[in-house]
């Protein structure tokens, strides 16, 4: 971060990031997360934000994540068809730490070679005029998902709230949906283990996944989700219980936003109506529900 000082915005980001890292380091010491962000330092940083962060935060909130969690809980009170989950990722704030990637792997008990949220890191320009972009890539939960139509057995569909899900007990593992996804998001579970080649199977390799609110054991190499295509569901199993997707909770840069687009008061609805928002591969007509801010 040291050599980005020339730029005001980067300077700010650097301080902002440091504050967050400091906050994260303190977290074990303080039981209530909202108290943490009420420390003088953090509040000052948020207030100095040049966008309208205060508008986003609104009311008495000092922690954007708690605000978004309440957005989610408010949305859950509506019938499912009235919700439209969406995610926004602020590329200016993403530090490329892969905390989201790892949290997702832990949350969904993903085996080696399966990753729902890789972070694409791209360098733009040549030295000394160079910048770097970190682009986390979850499932776009498209409004027009090409992966759904191609499935030969209707094992994947779009939930009423917009999340594209897979029926692990129906998927035949033909992998046609993987070829149809313009974002190369979907992943096949080959049944591999992190401890392959070691004399013992490590306990972390036996951990079940709780996707779709069920317990999916990995004891037997021929039963689901092994042999299935898998994908990010915005942590539907957490969302349905009123919790934010796991990738949001671990983001140290605060680069992630989530909520119900149909709720005009939600953080996400305010964010995606701005000019500096784009979506990946708009030309494909897939109408993704993941927005990028730059």
């Amino acid at each position: 971060m040291g050599n980005t000082k020339k730029n005001d915005r980067r300077d700010f980001l650097s301080k902002f990031g440091t504050a967050f890292i400091a906050g994260a380091a303190l977290s074990p010491l303080i039981s209530n997360a909202s108290e943490l962000l009420e420390t003088e330092n953090n509040v000052t940083e948020i207030k100095n934000f040049k966008g309208s962060f205060e508008d986003l935060l609104g009311g008495d909130y000092t922690n954007i994540k708690l605000r978004m969690q309440d957005d989610v809980r408010r949305a859950l009170k509506k019938p499912m068809k009235d919700r439209k989950w969406a995610m926004a990722i602020d590329l200016r704030k993403c530090v490329g730490c892969n905390a989201c990637t790892v949290a997702c792997i832990a949350e969904n008990a993903l085996p080696p070679g399966v990753v729902y949220r890789p972070v694409i890191k791209e360098e733009i320009g040549t030295y000394p005029n160079v910048s770097k972009i970190n682009l986390p890539k979850p499932c776009m939960q498209c409004d027009e998902p090409p992966c759904v139509d191609v499935c030969p057995v209707e094992a994947t569909w779009k939930r009423e709230d917009g999340i594209v899900v897979i029926d692990y007990e129906a998927c035949i593992g033909c992998r046609y949906c993987m070829t149809a996804c313009p974002y190369e998001h979907r992943m096949f579970d080959f049944g591999e283990k992190y401890s392959d080649g070691l004399p013992l199977v490590a306990n972390y390799d036996k951990r079940p996944s709780f996707e779709y609110g069920k317990e999916w054991d990995r004891e037997d190499r021929h039963s689901s989700p092994i042999g299935n295509v898998r994908k990010c569901t915005f942590c539907a199993h957490r969302l349905d219980e009123g919790l934010l997707p796991q990738c949001l909770t671990t983001c140290i840069g605060g680069a992630n936003y989530f909520g119900d687009l149909n709720d005009e008061d939600s953080v996400i609805a305010k964010l995606v109506s701005r000019l500096n928002v784009f979506r990946l591969k708009e030309e494909m007509g897939t109408e993704p529900n993941v927005y990028y801010i730059r």
Partner: peptide, 16 residues
Amino acid sequence: GEKIPGEASAYIQPRL
């Protein structure tokens, strides 16, 4: 071919 540039180096693993 990468469908999104940078995909190949985003997560290094033999299956990817």
